[in-house]
């Protein structure tokens, strides 16, 4: 786009595209500054001032609607006494407003000079938009797949232990096969105090260390799941003896009581454990086993925490609460009479 301006500031000639965007009124014959508002630099409308801006970048705005912005450069023509004496040649371009301009003025490829990269810019704009749309669709699909994978996951991401879903699967399988197993419901004691005094980062660290310590006390065939904030379930395949189970549970409590260092502080927690044996049931059911283990755990908590309580279906039927064995510190401590 270009315009030739006379020494009096009137437009003498202009390109076809400029005519197209000016609309009904032919810009030829009008004053340049009546057609264009000079936005920057802030200069007056006289021809002398305009000529002084020769060679520098001008920001223009069409005065007629839709008042699009244009970028321009003006070259002052010599005062040689000819028809263009004291005039100027103005080269105009759409700049960043080109996408709107093409739409508003129905411009076509022939409105742009062969060397003008505007068409390439428009191509790039459309091509990139299409590519972005394809990428956005892929992102949505991947996000959906991620959510589905999380729903199907069997791992507790904080501790690396199994999660509740995995525990359900293991229990269902053991019950379906009619295998003997023991189930321990473990709840940390004094964990809330760690969280409250040292913060969640300390709490998470404690949970990770607790998980590691429980794993260290179990065999590879056992299943250890974190089923709530500080609640764990351990499934011991093949275990059928109450006293052995209580022994193991006490060992777990003992190793959890060793202080857990965190950023110069020592975190101290303990645990209460409620346990059930599958062979105490004629027809073991998962929900029943878990509920009974939780009842035993409740008993252990009620009797002062840091204890193991083994659920007894016979005593339970007679209304006798299960005894809880207090955990004894140190390896030489003699375990009290258990059932």
């Amino acid at each position: 786009m270009h315009a030739v301006v006379s020494g009096t500031g009137h437009i003498l000639r202009c390109g076809a595209t400029l005519r197209k965007i000016q609309g009904r009124e032919d810009p030829v014959g009008q004053r340049f500054t009546e057609v264009f508002e000079i936005r920057r630099p802030r200069i007056g409308p006289s021809m002398a001032v305009l000529r002084a801006a020769s060679g520098s970048r001008l920001h223009l705005r069409m005065r007629s609607p839709p008042q699009i912005d244009l970028t321009a450069v003006l070259i002052a023509l010599p005062k040689d006494g000819g028809p263009l004496s004291g005039g100027a040649l103005v080269d105009l371009s759409f700049g960043i407003s080109v996408i709107d301009a093409v739409r508003d003025f129905a411009l076509t490829g022939s409105d742009f000079a062969v060397t003008d990269p505007t068409i390439e810019m428009l191509y790039l704009f459309e091509a990139k938009s299409a590519a972005m749309e394809a990428s956005r669709k892929l992102n949505l699909r991947l996000q959906g797949a991620m959510i589905a994978a999380e729903e199907q996951a069997f791992t507790d991401t904080l501790t690396g232990l199994k999660n509740r879903r995995a525990m359900d699967h293991v229990l269902t399988r053991l019950i379906d096969r009619g295998e003997d197993f023991a189930l321990m419901s473990l709840d940390l004691d004094y964990f809330k105090a760690v969280n409250d005094s040292l913060g969640h980062a300390a709490g998470d660290h404690v949970l990770q260390q607790v998980a590691r310590r429980i794993v260290g006390q179990m065999r590879g065939a056992d299943t250890i799941a974190r089923v709530g904030g500080d609640e764990f379930v351990v499934i011991l395949a093949g275990h059928a003896e109450g006293p052995v189970l209580v022994d193991i549970a006490e060992r777990v409590i003992g190793c959890l009581e060793a202080p857990i260092p965190f950023e110069g502080e020592e975190c101290r927690v303990s645990a209460s454990i409620g346990a059930v044996l599958s062979r105490d049931y004629a027809h073991p059911e998962m929900d029943q086993l878990l509920a009974d283990a939780d009842r035993a755990l409740y008993t252990a908590k009620m009797q002062g925490r840091r204890r193991v309580a083994l659920f007894d279906p016979v005593q339970d039927a007679e209304g006798v609460p299960p005894p809880a064995t207090p955990h004894q510190q140190g390896p030489d401590a003699k375990a009290p009479d258990r059932r």
Binding site: A101, V102, R103, A106, L107, T108, I119, S129
Partner: peptide, 8 residues
């Protein structure tokens, strides 16, 4: 017809 400024 090819409208350069059509919304893709």
């Amino acid at each position: 017809h090819f409208d350069l400024g059509a919304t893709p």
